[in-house]
Simulated scan of single mutants.
Amino acid sequence: MPAIPRKKVLIVHAHPERTSITRQLADSACEVLGEQGHVVMRSDLYGMGWKAVFDGQDFPRRVNPDRLSFIEESGHAFSHGCQTPDVEEEQRKILAADAVILLFPLWWYSMPAIMKGWVDRVWAFGLAYGYQGAGNAHRYGEGGFAGKRALLAVSVGGPAQDYSPRGINGPLEQLLFPITHGTLFFPGMQVLPTFAVYGTGSIDAQGMAEATTAWRGRVAKLFEDEPIAFRPQNGGDYPDRHALGPHIAPDQTGLMAHVVNASRPLR
């Protein structure tokens, strides 16, 4: 098998406990990628004391001091190089990265607030949305993060059955759709199927060892695995850039209509 070209990978993880499964998976990912010769950048959000709240303090040089418009201020700060240093540093990392791995526990069916705040502050107007000043012309498959890969690793307290296609909590791939399709695919990333560790509230040593082995295998194929087949905005399926054409998946509605061959599981 030919060697995988050397890449840069950004690992972003969010858990306050250093012995957490999230932290263990992040450490394992670093090891695997390092063994492959890749360059690893790391953002431990709790360890960094990341400011989670997106507010007026993010804009040292305001365009309008009387009314806070996040789009206006974010676009001005990004285009004029007057963002806060912590945001600029994270943007530097993500722009340099060929792939981004986000690791977090599933808290109330989403990511922890500190990671959501990382996205809110780093995904600037002009970069992750409003790309090239063209409004929504470049989104869902295009944009400032096009060409990069993304992978979620989620630790889930409950059993896998609760998150199965008919599980009481709802299918995990649909619960995470706002992240995979919205946060990541919207600005152009190719998103890989999510890796999940279930039953983490009672996992034993053997279960953790099995999960770690499976995770290491997924990380090893970070640049080989096929991404989720989200439909790109400008690929012809959305004639008006807003809604699917009547001839596209005519019998489907809801989230999975925006995935090609959605009858196949995403994980």
Rank of each mutant, 00 (worst) to 15 (best):
L255H: 05
A146L: 10
Y129K: 06
T19F: 15
T194R: 01
I228W: 15
F78K: 14
M1H: 12
P193M: 00
L33R: 11
Y131T: 07
T19N: 09
I94A: 03
S28F: 03
D237I: 05
G201R: 04
A29N: 01
L127R: 06
Q174W: 00
G144N: 04
G157C: 13
V260C: 00
G235I: 12
K51M: 04
G182D: 04
A214F: 10
F125T: 00
P171F: 07
A77Y: 02
F177K: 00
R42S: 08
L102M: 12
Q206W: 02
R121I: 01
I114Y: 11
F177Q: 05
A196W: 01
G56Q: 10
C30I: 04
S69N: 10
G217D: 02
L244A: 07
Q161N: 08
Q24G: 04
F186W: 05
V259K: 13
E142R: 08
K221D: 15
N136Q: 03
A209D: 14
E142H: 03
A77G: 01
R6T: 08
Q174I: 06
D204S: 08
Y109R: 05
P165R: 12
H76K: 00
K51V: 02
A137V: 01
V9M: 12
G235Y: 08
R241Q: 14
P85G: 08
T213F: 09
D204C: 07
Y109N: 06
E17G: 03
A214C: 11
A160S: 10
P85H: 02
A26F: 05
L102Q: 01
R149N: 06
Y140I: 02
V259T: 11
H258Q: 07
T200R: 06
I71S: 02
P250Y: 13
A134C: 10
A220V: 04
R264A: 15
A52D: 10
P165L: 02
P193I: 03
D44S: 04
E90F: 06
C30Y: 03
T213R: 15
W50P: 06
E72R: 12
G188Q: 07
L45F: 08
Y198W: 02
V260W: 09
A249N: 15
I101R: 04
V122I: 12
S28H: 07
G130S: 06
V32D: 05
A160C: 11
L172D: 04
G182K: 02
L244C: 01
T194W: 05
A29V: 10
T22H: 07
L45P: 09
L175G: 00
P16D: 13
T22A: 04
Y163F: 13
D204Q: 09
H258Y: 13
G170Q: 02
P112D: 10
A96F: 13
E73Q: 08
Y109E: 08
S28V: 06
H15V: 04
M111E: 10
G34D: 09
N234L: 07
K51F: 09
W108F: 09
V9R: 08
R6Q: 15
S202M: 00
G167E: 06
G245P: 12
H138Q: 14
L25E: 12
L244G: 10
T200P: 00
I248V: 15
Q233T: 12
I4E: 15
F177W: 14
P60H: 05
V39T: 11
D225R: 07
S164P: 03
G141D: 09
V87K: 08
Q24D: 05
N234W: 12
A29G: 08
P16A: 03
H258R: 15
Y129L: 05
P250I: 11
Y109H: 11
D120Q: 00
G235N: 06
